[in-house]
Structures are given as C-alpha cells and as structure tokens.
Design a protein around this nucleic acid. Structure first.
Length: 462
RNA sequence: UCCCCUGUAGCUCAGUCGGUAGAGCAGUUGGCUGUUAACCAAUUUGUCGCAGGUUCGAGUCCUGCCGGGGGAGCCA
C-alpha cells in the first residue's frame, strides 16, 4: 500500500491497485446506493472522485460527516471511471474522518464566493480552487526566480530587514523601536534615540538595493528576494505594506544589458509557470481572466518595445487621446499615459529609459546631456510599471552632489559613497514587486489576493 | 489622503414614489438518479453596518462614524 498525492494518482491507470489518499472533501453527491465525494489534497487543482458504496462497514456512522470541508483518509482501489470528467476514480473500502466541518457552521460553501468575503476568512481561503491555484503558482514562481538567477551564476544575498537609514528616500518607513511609546526618553525636547535598541533610529527596509550594490561590487552578479515594507497610506489593488521584492544587481553592466536581463527574466518566469502549472493556469484563463494564456504567450514570443522618455512624451503628445493629466517633458508619466503606451499604442511590454533626473532617484547615473538619467521602467498591459531599474552613478563627485540635491545627509551614505572611491565599476540592477508579478501571471485583480496574508492600511488580521 | 460607488438572510443580490422584508444558492425534509456547479418538490432563516435626525410612518430621505469596492495620488 502506497500513499500518493492526488496529482500522482490522477496520472495512474486504474488497475485496481490499493491506494490510500489523504485530503479534504470538496463536494458530495448522493445517490440511492452510492455516494460520490471529491477529495482535494492541494497537490493539484483537480479532485479525486471517490465512490462510497453504502454497504461499506461504517457508512451509517460517517455519512453525517462526509461533508464539504471534512479531513479524511480513504483507503480503496483505483479503477477506471465509467463516468465523464475523470479517467480514474477511487472505490472506497475504508474511510476515516479526522475532523468534520458542520455544514451549518463552515463558511465555505460549494459555490462561488466573492474575493472580498474570502479575504475575511483568509484562514480558510486556501481551501478554495482559486487560492489553492495561487499558492501553487506563487510557489512555482519563487522557485523559478531562484532557478533563473542561480543558473546564470548570480549569488543569492540576504540583505537586512532592519535598516538604519531611509535608504533611497523611497517612501514612508515603519519605525522599529523597543521604547514604550509613552515613556520614550527625551533629551532637549526630542526623543533620545541613543537610548533605543540600536542607539539610533531604525526602520524596516524599503529596499535591499544599496546593500545589494555592495555585494555586486565584490561578487559581480547578485540578487535579493525578500520582504520589503512601505508605510505609505495607499489604498489600491496593487499596494501592500509588506511585500516581497526581487532585486538583481550586476557589476560591469550598463543600462542596455540591464534591460536585456529584465526582459529575459520576465519571459523565463512566464514560460516556466505556463509549463509547470498548466492546470492552474488554465483555470485562471477560464475563470479569472479571459485571454490570459494567449496574452502571456504573446509576451514570451515578442520583443519588448524600448523607447526613451523623450520619445514617449512625443508619442503621447501626438496621440489623439484626451488625457486627464498634462503631457510635458519634465513631468512624470501618469498611470493613464503608461496604460496608453502599453495597452493601446504598442499592445505589449514597453521599456522606457532616460527619464529627467529631477523625477528619479539620486543614485541613477547621469547621461552626458546632464538632463536625463539612465533609468528604465518596464511597463506591462493591465498593471503598468512592473519593474523599475537603472544604471547606478559610479562617479564619486556626481553622486555626492546628487545626495546633496536630494536633501539627504551624505554622512549617512559614507559606505555607499565608498564603493565609488575604491574600484568603482559600472553596475546596474532593477527591482521587481513579486506580488505584482504574481498578479500579472494569474490575472488576479487585487494584490491582496495573491499574498497569503495581506498587510495593508488598517488591515492586519491572521 | 482625495473623488465616486456600496453595506439588506450563512453566501450572492433585488427592494420602484417613504407605507412595515424578497429571490437564487446553501441548510432541512421528501422524491429521483453512476453522479460530477447533479436534478425535482416543499420549507426554515433578518439588530436592513452603527449612532443620531426629518416624518404619522425610514431598508428607502438627511448628518456623522465604521467597513468594503472602483478610480486617482504615492509607488514595487
């Protein structure tokens, strides 16, 4: 007798072999002489149809508990199924109920629930088709991210979660302290952080990039993949307070090679998930987002458009679209502009480069025109910006000036500046919000549904 | 944070002009059937988000608060 996962069982021939299956009942259909129950164990979106003859020994004692949600172990024989919809089915000999799920109390019903409702029962939602599929796809994507970088010689670097400075001015930060807030020590009217745990103010990281650069400037190619925190008061379907970010950093790499890697990376992840999560992806295509598979295929097999910011602005000016926000060189592109470029004009991913320096981060390398920097944003249909990256400034003086201009204290960045004093080389990298990538791949509309336990403004359950 | 929409049965929703609460699904009971979103019949279920106000009378109109959704900003 062998214990198999349902994914494996469904690929077997029904040759009457005895097997044991462990899982949760998804649905029950009762007949006069027999009862059909479908079992799911998370290994696949597909259920194993199990036929329960009312003559099996403990039928009377378990029938009340053979409900949607009950956890069961079933021993039986695998046979070809005479019915439609499945190749094999299990003829149960012995059923053990571990824990039942009373139908009048169990919130999950055998029907479609709204995602809003399922968010309120995040402890039960992975038992649904959609959230099971998301969990498997998310898992596969994580694994493939490592695969992509590992197979290309990138080192996985663990950058810190707790940070001593607002690394790139990238948004609001969560403060970390061991002070009791109403008893924090005060010196000259200000809170005395020298008495706090680290002896200075500390925060949760908003990016591992600056530390990533340190390792890239020693080991050539590295990547980070870890949690990131933003305390912004943003309430949208694509923002989380706690999310996972992928940040490769490459030495001896300019902006063009950086774009090549970003494009290859996205295509690799899409292709791998399509191959490894076929059933789940077909489910998303059918139930969540029509045309999803076709769209991903199209992206895998097409070249991304690459234009610079100046040309993007020209294109937008020439378009007949009535934009709500003005299009003018020097202003940042709005969501509606990005959507126009990627959804209407080009109908595929677009990489925009060379933005005005005023609207981009201090660490980005200045072009010779002294007006633009070597930034690159990858825009995709439906989501907008999915990747933001740049070639980094390598010149000590220029970087120092940019830090001053940004109103940051260069003393906080002495180690970052030091990378430009000793063996400074061209280097580039990008950041990718993992949940946004999962959103794009699955077609899910709300980012809170592609992370198991979302943390957002005013939301911290489970 | 701003704009718009929304909150009614366990779930998904309808509720007109202000007149005292409705459907589908689920549940329960019965029937039928190698079923597969099973089917057929009957049937139970309500602090109408919370607090105030207008009114003879409020699910419905007004004010405030809370939750949810969409869009924007910020951003990944």
């Amino acid at each position: 007798m062998v214990k198999l996962r349902i994914k494996e069982i469904l690929s077997l021939d029904g040759n009457n072999s005895e097997i044991t299956v462990e899982g949760w009942i998804r649905t029950r259909r009762e007949s006069k002489e027999i009862t059909f129950i479908e079992i799911n164990d998370g290994s696949t979106i597909n259920n194993l149809q199990t036929v329960v003859d009312k003559k099996i020994e403990n039928y009377e004692s378990i029938i009340q508990q053979l409900n949607n949600g009950s956890g069961v172990t079933i021993r039986g024989r695998l046979v070809p199924s005479p019915g439609q919809g499945q190749n094999v089915e299990l003829l149960a000999d012995k059923i053990q109920i571990h824990g039942d799920a009373p139908v009048d109390k169990y919130p999950l019903q055998k029907k479609r629930h709204s995602f809003e409702f399922l968010r309120t029962i995040a402890h039960l939602r992975p038992r649904t088709n959609t959230f099971g599929a998301i969990a498997r796809v998310r898992n596969a994507m994580s694994f493939e991210i490592h695969n992509f970088f590992q197979s290309r010689g990138f080192l996985y670097v663990h950058t810190p979660i707790i940070s001593g400075s607002d690394c790139e001015g990238a948004g609001e930060m969560f403060q970390v302290t061991t002070f009791k807030l109403n008893e924090a020590p005060v010196l000259d009217g200000e809170i005395d952080y020298t008495k706090d745990f680290f002896g200075k103010r500390s925060f949760l990281t908003v990016s591992g990039q600056l530390e990533g650069e340190i390792y890239a400037c020693a080991l050539k190619n590295i990547y980070t993949f870890g949690p990131t925190f933003r305390a912004e008061n943003s309430n949208t379907a694509r923002h989380l307070a706690e999310f996972w970010m992928v940040e490769p950093e490459m030495a001896f790499c300019d902006i063009d090679l950086n774009m090549d890697v970003a494009e290859e990376f996205l295509k690799y992840i899409f292709a791998s998930v399509l191959e490894k999560c076929k059933d789940d992806m077909e489910f998303f295509d059918k139930r969540i987002c029509a045309g999803l598979l076709k769209n991903l295929d199209h992206i895998i097999n097409s070249e991304f458009i690459r234009i610079d910011y100046t040309e993007a602005v020209e294109r937008l000016k020439r378009s007949k679209n009535n934009f709500e926000f003005p299009v003018k060189w020097g202003l940042d592109l709005q969501s509606e502009h990005e959507k126009y470029l990627t959804e209407k004009l080009f109908k595929k991913p677009v990489i925009i480069t060379d933005y005005p320096r005023e609207i981009k981060a201090f660490y980005m390398k200045a072009n010779n025109d002294n007006k633009t920097v070597r930034a690159m944003d990858v825009l995709v249909p439906r989501l907008g910006e999915i990747i933001g990256g740049s070639e980094r400034e390598t010149d000590y003086e220029k970087l120092q000036n940019r830090i001053d201009e940004a109103g940051l204290r260069s003393s906080d960045y002495w180690w970052y500046l030091d990378l430009r004093r000793f063996g400074s080389v061209p280097h580039s990298g990008f950041g990718l919000g993992f949940e946004r990538l999962v959103q794009f791949v699955t077609g899910m509309q709300n980012i809170r549904d592609v992370i198991p336990f979302p943390r957002c403004v005013k939301t911290l359950d489970f």
